[in-house]
């Protein structure tokens, strides 16, 4: 079943067509990789899917029925979507624990003032922080974490969301091997739980190991799609990466 579909999605910045007539479909429960040279529009696609950027034209369809042409960022969690940011965006001058708790609590003003689920949220926060090995650092400010720990905290924050669709923008970039292992374990576990993952990644070995399906983007367009081994062997894909 196709859980997320884009229909002729378009986004341009001034002269640059960052996402160009892009129609892709992502199957529920799969890990879908997105690769492509720098500037090929991968992050822009994630920004469109998460309401962080406005869509110029085209539409997104969730679960085959819910369709949006434009969406506010705060509405994407209702569609079961959550994301990380390529440029790691944490709540810097807040503790590690608060970075998690803040995505668990009531969403409207009045209920959040009189929150009633403190214990439950604390348990959930411990669970996701344990998963990425940051529970011991729970009282540190996010700003004081190392680069790798910051990326792990971002992953933990998405886990706390209990989403259906996870958009991960280069979650492995710049990580030491032991952290790469933590993140790939998280991704595999999400898959076991039946979640859907969109994974932007440059490391082809990880793509081969993790992804069920692969999309290759170039200059905002879909260049190729299919099983990772097959796609990565295609001549035009190799050319896009190595230059012509």
């Amino acid at each position: 079943m196709t859980i997320l579909e884009t229909k002729k999605l378009e986004k341009h910045f001034d002269g640059v067509q960052a996402v160009d007539n892009l129609s892709i479909g992502i199957e529920k429960g799969e890990i879908a990789g997105i690769v492509g040279p720098n500037g090929s529009g991968k992050t822009t696609l994630i920004n469109l899917l998460s309401g962080t950027l406005e869509i110029d034209a085209g539409a997104v369809i969730i679960n085959g029925v819910q369709k949006f042409e434009n969406i506010n960022p705060w509405q994407i969690s209702f569609y079961g979507i959550t994301r990380t940011f390529q440029d790691v965006r944490l709540f810097e001058q807040m503790t590690v624990l608060d970075n998690i708790l803040v995505v668990l609590t009531e969403r409207n003003v009045f209920s959040s003032l009189f929150e009633k689920h403190k214990e439950y949220h604390l348990k959930k926060a411990e669970e996701v922080l344990q998963k990425v090995g940051l529970w011991k650092k729970k009282n540190q400010l996010a700003i004081n974490l190392s680069y790798g720990q910051r990326k792990l905290l971002e992953i933990a924050r998405t886990l706390a969301m209990d989403a259906e669709i996870y958009l991960f923008d280069e979650p492995f970039a710049g990580l030491f091997p032991e952290m790469v292992k933590i993140v790939s374990d998280v991704v595999k576990e999400l898959k076991r739980e039946g979640k859907t993952i969109i994974l932007i990644e440059h490391n082809m070995e990880l793509i081969r190991k993790l992804c069920d399906y692969l999309f290759v983007m170039d200059e905002g367009k879909l260049l190729a799609e299919g099983k990772p081994e097959k796609v990565l062997a295609k001549k035009e894909v190799i050319e896009a990466y190595l230059g012509k």
Partner: peptide, 8 residues
């Protein structure tokens, strides 16, 4: 912008 993405 980041906190908006989490539903607020």
């Amino acid at each position: 912008k980041a906190i908006q993405v989490f539903g607020y």
